[in-house]
């Protein structure tokens, strides 16, 4: 298992390095002079040239890249032209809110889609199956931001206990300083009122963000369960008198969970993309609002930083999935080990 993990972690580091190089190069070759944009139209040619020199824009691109990577290895993402602060600290400030939202979304996805998929497979072709089919179709076809707006409208008229903007009631006066995650920090600080309030704020954006993934993963769980259910070892288990409950969970779901988990990992990329829009709709103080502002301002260091952070998210999510698959399916870890 340790071998398997090292191998996976190493290959994911390579992915991140590749991403950093690619996004850096793309950011440098797009037209437009960052120094000019930063200084505004009124700056003199001299001032621009000075800033270019200061930012190192006159060096050859591979030198710039090298400086950037060295900085990156030390946790330095450069300075934001927009806020004049280190990009790293800007991102670290906005990150927890996004992380909390994404985490809540994934938990929601897993805890809704897999049980529903199992149910749909178990009651195949019954009304339960049909209803989940319609739900998943709706979840997949309605874009996240449309759902976000619909939910917002519904909440402001009918379900007013779910706030439609922000992350926490400002009157609560609470600073999430330990982990940055409201749900965890409120528990640490012993503030149940904050915990409940944070949940209320989290609910709608998380639903809006989770819907597409839920639909997909649910259908995949269903078909994987049905496929596994027709395998010989399930018939054998039935004939040996193993109870149906044990067969469904230990024998079928365990084997069937490989496909939905893999999809969940891949879905993560579109989840991050959707998070940008959904955060915007709900005025969620996460990395999205920062990302959108910096992109519009061509604040290159910040843009690269945001993309890299999204990449880290994706890579960590997939590493987690790989570890889970390794635990669930011995073939994932033993195949490598046997050859060694």
């Amino acid at each position: 298992m340790a071998f398997y993990l090292t191998k996976r972690a190493l290959s994911l580091l390579m992915v991140l390095l590749g991403l950093a190089v690619m996004i850096f190069v793309i950011a440098r070759i797009v037209p437009g002079d960052p120094a000019r944009i930063a200084l505004g139209p009124l700056a003199t040619a001299n001032q621009v040239a000075e800033l270019r020199q200061e930012m190192g824009l006159n060096d050859p691109i591979y030198v710039q890249l090298w400086h950037y990577l060295v900085g990156l290895a030390q946790g330095d993402l450069g300075k934001s032209l927009l806020t004049s602060r280190p990009v790293m600290s800007d991102i670290l400030q906005a990150l927890p809110a996004t992380f909390e939202l994404v985490l809540a979304t994934v938990i929601l996805q897993i805890s809704i889609s897999i049980p529903l998929g199992v149910l749909a497979a178990y009651y195949r072709d019954s009304w339960i199956d049909n209803i989940t089919r319609i739900l998943s179709l709706l979840g997949v076809v309605i874009p996240g931001f449309v759902l976000a707006i619909i939910l917002q409208l519904l909440a402001s008229y009918y379900f007013t206990s779910f706030p439609v903007t922000g992350r926490l009631d400002p009157s609560l006066d609470f600073q999430a300083n330990t982990t940055g995650l409201l749900l965890i920090d409120s528990v640490i600080a012993g503030r149940p009122d904050v915990f409940i309030d944070a949940l209320r704020y989290l609910f709608l954006p998380a639903i809006a963000l989770a819907a597409g993934g839920i639909g997909q993963v649910m259908r995949i769980t269903r078909s994987a369960m049905i496929e596994v259910g027709s395998r010989d070892f399930i018939e054998a288990a039935r004939a040996y008198g193993i109870p149906e409950r044990v067969i469904t969970f230990r024998y079928m779901l365990r084997v069937a969970s490989v496909a939905p988990l893999t999809i969940l990992g891949l879905e993560f990329a579109s989840l991050i993309g959707n998070a940008f829009v959904v955060e915007f709709v709900f005025s969620w103080p996460g990395i999205a609002s920062y990302g959108v502002r910096t992109i519009l301002q061509k604040d290159l260091n910040a843009v690269i930083g945001v993309v890299l952070v999204s990449g880290v998210f994706f890579v960590i999510a997939n590493l987690t999935i790989d570890v889970l698959l390794g635990i669930i399916d011995p073939r994932h870890r033993i195949r490598g080990a046997q050859k060694a």
């Binding site: 395998r231 070892f233 054998a236 288990a237 008198g241 193993i242 365990r254 011995p330």
Partner: peptide
């Protein structure tokens, strides 16, 4: 009791042999 046709397909690939055999005895 039965012995199914294909020994390659008649086991749960994710559980050890011991675990599967123990399940059979335990639930019986």
């Amino acid at each position: 009791s039965i012995v199914l046709q294909d020994p390659m397909l008649s086991f749960n690939p994710l559980l050890t042999i011991g675990r599967q055999m123990d399940d059979v005895v335990r639930f019986a």
